[in-house]
Design a binder for these strands. Structure first.
Lengths: 348, 348
DNA sequence: TAAAAACGGACAAACGTTTGCGCATAATTA
DNA sequence: TAATTATGCGCAAACGTTTGTCCGTTTTTA
């Protein structure tokens, strides 16, 4: 039996009935008699019949498939997110078409095209770091293919998105350190060009205001996120007049570089110098010297929300609900989590 | 312009020519005159025409899509692999349809069905831990849909696979420890039911033989891979007559549990008790107390190889090469890697 | 200048479904 | 018993392509 899969047509021929009857019989359409229905189902079973989705897709104009484009699958943050997305999609009988942009604008554009050609019903996107023009996304809207952005949001009007606001978490982080008695708190921030850096800086300043403290700009230094850059940034902080006793780092990688460097400088981690970071790495629980707390961004949750929104939009569209005019703009509040707990850092 | 995407049919109507002409013009078929060709392309451009892949799929009987089924996307090993798979697929103009089984045999079966319905051209599978029957895979072969398994291989005849042999790496690991002067080396192995445990044990024994040493079975203990189980296993080893000075652990999680426990017992890691493990975790480079060496399984490479094999098979099939009778069985040799190096542990 | 070849394009089938409509036959009603 | 309504099923169009075959012009060749 090394044949092509059975078709409805073959069943019809073998039973000497029409294809439409077979189709209806398989769908339990009321206008088909019990006997024929049973005959059809029996034969379908024997022939191991499986409907050809590609045909159905063409016929129905929908593919029950959502496209997912994100920068890098091997990044822990994104693999958590995609895992959530797949789970959500599966529950609602959708399938996931996956692609990674590797932070390449050109590739991202090609992928959008490809997804369009594949006629995905909708798209989930975390935009490439290097994307400057958003025309390829705009184009898609013309075709009535909904997009939901998550985590990395483009500067566009009228879009659906799910993102995590770092400000609250940052305020919590700084307040946490203040409460622990620190009076001089440094921040190793990312490049000023990044939106994420802005959020962190804002959070820092607001925490100071909230606690009625003076903001000292020299306590926020930026780095290029490399190990060398981090070392330099930490050196800068430690050389500062108001030498900080605690540091908030842009992300876990920076934190680990900084911790390593601090250890080399014979500083006792979280005693001489306390660290708080933003969670990207899943394993922080396993390490010895880690930030005493982390601002969690809930990748699993973000992916889940984004997928659910998209699937809702698709369901509405399929039910012929009028054109959307409102846009989902979900902000997940980041949250400070003290480490060494039993907290599930995946945010599941 | 909130219309459906343009079709070849519309172009034909607007230009008062036949659809076949339009199709051929767009494909630069020689039998179409230059002028019409240009007219067609011009209009296609203006209408933002994009071929409807679902229609092409139906027509051609192939989808340029490969399905990937693996246990859990958020596992670092698998996210590396899927990243490689997507990269390989992209290069050869294929797209990836993704699903995770969560180690659930039933779900895995459903996913295979789903993939079949979606008419993926081929399948890449890392089988669920709990899968006992492989009938769903056998079925697929009937339909001439090639499958390549990777990492977790089912006990089936006549399959293509890519796997990593742990034996060599284990021999290297034990030999490495012997060479460093250890005379009593323990192993915290996984459950005996796991194939992977067998490989490790075999490797251990072979290393002993190779080094003309006597094998002491009491130095290999098994655990259930939980933290508690690991602690117990380590206690067992430490209480043994020939108290080991080095331990090979089943995987990084076990290693970390064991290291934590050893630290609690006031043992100095890699001095009083040296650890060697199998790499699953990407961050081992960042941690303080880590195994001094790891047996690397190269997830990225495995994914890449598996994808390449599948794509080769598909290319052959498409070119009408006769039915395959030979099977790819690629074994990637695991390799011991000393930590704290600059080695890229992703295996990229 | 007539026959042959080359050119440019149209027709229609096919891929596997779903679904609106129409049409017999059988069952119900009056 | 005649008129009406169910019941059960077939016909054919449609989704958007590709591609084998055929046919009418034009160009080339002899």
């Amino acid at each position: 039996m090394r044949s092509k899969p059975a078709t409805i047509k073959e069943i019809a021929q073998l039973l000497n009935i029409s294809v439409s009857t077979v189709s209806r019989a398989l769908h339990d359409h009321p206008s088909i008699g019990l006997t024929t229905r049973q005959k059809v189902k029996k034969l379908a079973g024997e022939l191991n019949y499986e409907p050809n989705q590609t045909a159905i897709f063409l016929q129905q104009g929908r593919t029950l498939t959502i496209g997912v484009i994100l920068p890098d699958l091997s990044e822990s943050f994104f693999s958590s997110a995609i895992s959530a997305i797949e789970d959500s999609a599966y529950k609602r009988n959708y399938t996931v078409l996956l692609a990674q942009s590797h932070d390449d604008e050109q590739k991202e554009k090609q992928l959008v095209e490809k997804m369009k050609n594949h006629r995905v019903d909708g798209l989930l996107v975390s935009v490439s770091k290097n994307t400057s023009s958003y025309q390829h996304f705009e184009n898609l809207k013309q075709y009535n293919i909904p997009i939901v952005f998550f985590d990395r949001i483009p500067a566009m009007q009228n879009i659906h998105y799910v993102a995590c606001n770092m400000e609250i978490g940052t305020i919590e982080a700084v307040s946490y350190l203040l409460k622990k008695g620190h009076r001089s708190i440094g921040m190793i921030n990312g490049p000023g060009t990044l939106f994420a850096s802005g959020e962190r800086k804002e959070g820092y300043i607001k925490a100071m205001i909230k606690n009625r403290l003076k903001f000292d700009p020299s306590l926020i230094v930026t780095c290029d996120l490399t190990e060398a850059g981090t070392q330099q940034a930490l050196n800068e902080l430690l050389a500062s007049k108001r030498k900080p006793t605690a540091v908030v780092t842009f992300n876990d990688y920076v934190a680990l570089f900084a911790i390593k460097h601090a250890t080399d400088l014979k500083l006792r981690i979280n005693q001489d110098l306390e660290f708080v970071s933003y969670a990207n790495l899943p394993l922080i629980n396993y390490m010895e010297s880690i930030p005493s707390a982390s601002v969690e961004q809930f990748p699993y949750l973000q992916g889940q929300k984004a997928a659910d929104i998209l699937l809702d939009l698709l369901a509405q569209k399929h039910q012929g609900v009028a054109e959307q005019t409102a846009y989902y703009k979900i902000i997940i509040e980041s949250q400070l989590i003290e480490n060494r707990g039993t907290t599930d850092i995946k945010g599941k």
